[in-house]
Simulated assay, not measured.
Amino acid sequence: MLSLLYRWFRSPRSRLRDVTLGRRLGTLALWVMGVCTAHVIAMMVLEGMALRDALWLTATTIVTVGYGDLFAKTDAGRLATVGFMYVGGIFVVASLVSALVDWRTDSQERKANGTWGWKLTNHLLLIGEPSGDAVQHLCRLVDQVRAHEDWRDAPILLLTRAFEATRLPAALADRGVVHVTGSAADATALTHAAPDRARTSLVFSSSETDREATARVLDTVLRLREAGQKTSIIAECVDVGDHDRLARLGAAQPIRVMHGYPEVAARAIVSPGSEALIEQLFTAEGDECRRVDLPRVWEGTWLDLLTRIAGAGIGTPIGYLCADTGAVLANPVGRSIRAKALFLIVGDDRQVNATRDTVQALAL
Rank of each mutant, 00 (worst) to 15 (best):
N113Y: 04
L218D: 04
K340C: 10
I234L: 02
D18E: 14
A323M: 09
G132Y: 01
S98Q: 04
Q253T: 05
I309P: 01
D242E: 13
L16P: 09
F163L: 06
T301M: 03
W298A: 06
T231I: 04
A42Y: 10
G313F: 11
S98P: 07
D143V: 01
W103T: 15
V65C: 11
H39K: 08
R199G: 05
L224E: 03
P12Y: 11
A184F: 06
M85I: 10
D174N: 12
V359I: 15
T200S: 04
D239M: 06
R52H: 14
L4K: 15
I233G: 01
S336H: 11
L362S: 05
P262I: 00
G114P: 02
V45R: 12
G26R: 11
L168T: 07
K119G: 06
A42C: 13
A59G: 13
R161A: 08
R167C: 05
T355H: 09
C139Y: 05
L321N: 02
M1G: 15
I234K: 00
A330I: 13
L138I: 01
A38H: 06
W118V: 11
R256H: 08
I234M: 00
G273N: 12
F84H: 06
H259S: 01
P272K: 02
S3A: 15
G66E: 13
T121K: 13
G260P: 02
R267F: 11
A94T: 08
M43C: 05
W103K: 14
E299A: 13
C36N: 13
R23D: 15
L342K: 03
G68Y: 01
S205F: 04
H179A: 15
R211N: 12
K119D: 14
L281F: 13
L141Q: 00
P155T: 02
Q360H: 08
I318N: 01
A154S: 13
D242K: 06
T191I: 11
N331D: 09
K340M: 12
G182A: 05
W31Y: 11
E109F: 14
A99W: 03
Q280A: 14
E149G: 08
V87Y: 04
A184D: 06
R17M: 13
W118T: 06
D293L: 13
V87N: 03
H137K: 06
A276F: 12
A38G: 08
V178S: 14
H148I: 00
A235K: 07
E275G: 02
V346A: 04
I337S: 02
Y86E: 05
L224G: 03
E212T: 10
T214C: 07
G319P: 00
L344Y: 00
A252C: 07
G89R: 02
M49F: 15
H179I: 06
R146C: 01
F163Y: 15
D174Q: 09
V32G: 02
Q136C: 04
E236M: 08
G117L: 07
V359F: 10
T37E: 08
G260A: 03
A266Y: 00
L16T: 10
A59V: 14
W116V: 03
T188S: 14
V101H: 12
Q360N: 08
A284G: 08
A29V: 15
G66S: 11
Y6P: 05
Q253R: 14
A165L: 10
R248P: 04
